[in-house]
Simulated assay, not measured.
Amino acid sequence: MPYQNSKKIISYISIGLLSFTMALGTQMSEASAKNANKNGNGNGNGNGNGNTTSTPVASTPTPGSTTSTPVASTPTSGTTTSTPVASTPTPVASTTPVLALSPATVVSSTATCSVTNVSLGGTTATDCKGPFQGNDTGNQSTLLSTLNSQNGSGLFDLNVGSNVQWSLAGKSDDGGNSLGFKAANDFNTGSWSLNNPFTINPTSNLSTFVISLKTSTAYSTYLFKEVDFSKTGLKGIFDTIGVALDGSGKNGKDLSHASLFVASYYKPKPPVTKVPEPAVNLSLALLALGGFKILKRKNLETAEN
């Protein structure tokens, strides 16, 4: 009897231990499953939201540190790497800056001479012509020949008449001349002067002359007609603004040199009267004599009848 009771007790204990072991195993399995779910949700969702490099096309960026590049994929949970998809670049209109021209580079070609560009003792020029391209003196110049053109086509013939002979009297860069003519070379405005007055017109005892202002590649001419040096003096001023303009378009270029041309008046030759030739006179005399004889004969015949 005691032996049987011992067997029963052992059986009960074994059954209890088995039940406890099975229950403990079940609880451990459930605990492992719960831990696995927690780790999966934490790493997948947390890392996916925090560390994923999002590259959607035409979509709202995912919160966090995202860099948008054109891809055709949707980001998945967890750490993902997007594969770039080839796309056609959008042309961007380039803007090239255009530099505005500096006022200093603007060149004006509207220089026109004025009688006020040159004066003598406060008396302005009578007339002016120019500007002309080229040189006013030298072998290549045509100014002197233009002044002396015949048949009323001279440069200032309308002012002074055609019975004038022009000649070059001096230049401001020739080192000296008989009239002491000089001017402030290398300046666009300045003074000019004479040392000696001159009288050309023997009738009026007045002087007519032309001053030419020459810059780098052009010149203008200024006529002074019948000047009385006793009233004007021998000093004047000039401005090359009527010859050529500098880069600013507001001032004349520097003077290269000035030239003085003086006029000499001469009396026009009297018209030539044609004298009949001797042979013509003899023919006329014979003709008159023949006519006289014929008339005398007719008179005699009339008297006899």
Rank of each mutant, 00 (worst) to 15 (best):
N185V: 11
D228A: 07
F229K: 05
S220Q: 08
D239I: 06
F209N: 10
D239C: 06
N196G: 00
S178A: 15
L223M: 04
V210T: 09
L223P: 01
V227P: 01
N201D: 15
N195I: 00
G236W: 13
G180D: 04
D239A: 13
S178W: 04
G175D: 09
S216I: 07
T199E: 14
T203S: 15
F224L: 02
L223D: 08
D186L: 10
P202Q: 08
L234C: 07
L168Y: 05
N205F: 06
P202Y: 10
K171D: 09
W166P: 02
Q165Y: 12
L206W: 11
V210L: 10
S207M: 07
L194E: 07
F238E: 12
V164Y: 09
K214M: 13
E226R: 07
Y222D: 08
N205C: 00
F229W: 09
D174R: 03
N195M: 10
K231N: 08
A183P: 01
V164D: 11
V227E: 10
K182L: 03
T189Q: 13
N185T: 13
N205P: 00
A169Q: 09
F238Q: 14
T199S: 08
G170Y: 12
T215W: 03
S207N: 12
N195E: 15
P202S: 06
G170D: 08
T203Q: 14
T217I: 07
A183I: 03
S230D: 15
S191A: 14
G175H: 07
K214Q: 15
E226D: 15
F224S: 01
T189M: 04
S191V: 05
L168V: 04
Y222I: 02
W192Y: 05
T232W: 08
P202W: 05
S193M: 04
V227C: 02
F229L: 08
P197T: 07
L206F: 12
K231C: 00
S191L: 12
G242P: 11
F209K: 06
F229N: 06
D186A: 10
D173G: 03
P202T: 12
N195V: 00
F224D: 05
K171H: 00
T232F: 06
N185G: 04
N205S: 13
N196V: 09
A218T: 11
F198L: 12
Q165A: 14
T221N: 13
V210G: 07
T217E: 14
Y219P: 04
V227G: 02
L223T: 08
S207I: 07
Q165R: 14
L179K: 11
E226N: 15
N185Q: 12
S212M: 11
A218N: 15
F198A: 12
S212T: 15
S207F: 03
